[in-house]
């Protein structure tokens, strides 16, 4: 896969910040009372993510290692302020419904996490794509969560009434705080049940390693096993390489022989 497309796939599906990595829970739970709010919050965070990832990656050789976190925060906070002013100016109703959660994007752990884990170590364009992938994944998750909660809790989606649900009596609890936990749990459980491809959900044995290739869960005796597996693979690969070379040499010799014979 193209490495830029791979970043997008990684952010949206494989390491989806909400359903797989469980990052940024505070805005996820708090603002997804409707699909519109979820979409707005997701897009605002995405914009900040792309821009901050890009800038941090550009500055990664300038920022001293010891003060990198404050430096990240300053960069993120500047972008959040810009986005907030834009939202206040052009989307006052969204600003009213998201409220304090827009400035709180500064401390969103997805953004700091991507800066620390990706942008600080990779090239600017790749980092921007990483931010875009993560942002889209976050937006999609928040919109789905908001839509489901709005549907059950208020009987509408994007403030549009659903025609064949006119007799449906909404369950108010779903657009209140507990509903966020219920819906998030249900969606995450469904994702695990249907084995959506993700970093934590490798259903079939894709790797010969005991930890299934997931370094985060590699511990203790598994680690030793993994090392043995890796060594074995290496040996096998080397042996195969040797054999191939030997064969090639033999064939060459044969060809030469045949050539000389003719």
């Amino acid at each position: 896969m193209n490495k830029y497309a791979e970043r997008l796939y990684n952010g949206t599906i494989k390491e989806n910040p909400t359903f797989v990595m469980m990052l940024g829970m505070c805005p996820t739970l708090a603002v997804t009372t409707s699909a519109t709010n979820g979409l707005g919050m997701g897009l605002a965070s995405s914009a900040v993510l792309v821009l901050s990832n890009f800038l941090i990656s550009l500055l990664r050789k300038v920022i001293p290692d010891k003060v990198r976190i404050p430096a990240f925060i300053v960069i993120v906070a500047s972008f959040v302020t810009m986005i907030q002013l834009l939202i206040q100016g052009y989307l006052p109703s969204l600003n009213a419904s998201l409220g304090i959660y827009i400035p709180l994007i500064v401390v969103n752990c997805i953004i700091l996490g991507r800066a620390e884990a990706y942008a600080y170590k990779n090239t600017p364009l790749l980092s921007a794509f990483d931010g875009l992938g993560m942002g889209l994944g976050f937006t999609a998750a928040l919109t789905i969560l908001g839509a489901c909660r709005e549907l059950i809790g208020a009987g509408t989606i994007f403030d549009k009434a659903i025609p064949f649900l006119s007799n449906f009596e909404p369950m108010t609890i779903m657009i209140m705080a507990p509903g966020a936990f219920f819906m998030l749990a249900i969606l995450t459980a469904l994702q695990n049940k249907f084995k959506a491809p993700s970093a934590t959900n490798t259903g079939s044995q894709k790797s010969s390693l005991a930890c299934n290739g997931n370094c985060a869960s590699c511990i203790g005796s598994e680690c030793k096993e993994n090392h043995m597996a890796i060594e074995k693979e290496k040996e096998e690969a080397e042996a195969a390489e040797k054999e191939r070379k030997l064969k090639a040499a033999q064939e060459k010799a044969k060809m030469k022989q045949e050539g000389s014979e003719q």
């Binding site: 369950m171 108010t172 609890i173 779903m174």
Partner: peptide, 8 residues
């Protein structure tokens, strides 16, 4: 309580 909040 779930019902009380949902269908007050």
């Amino acid at each position: 309580c779930f019902l009380l909040i949902s269908f007050a």
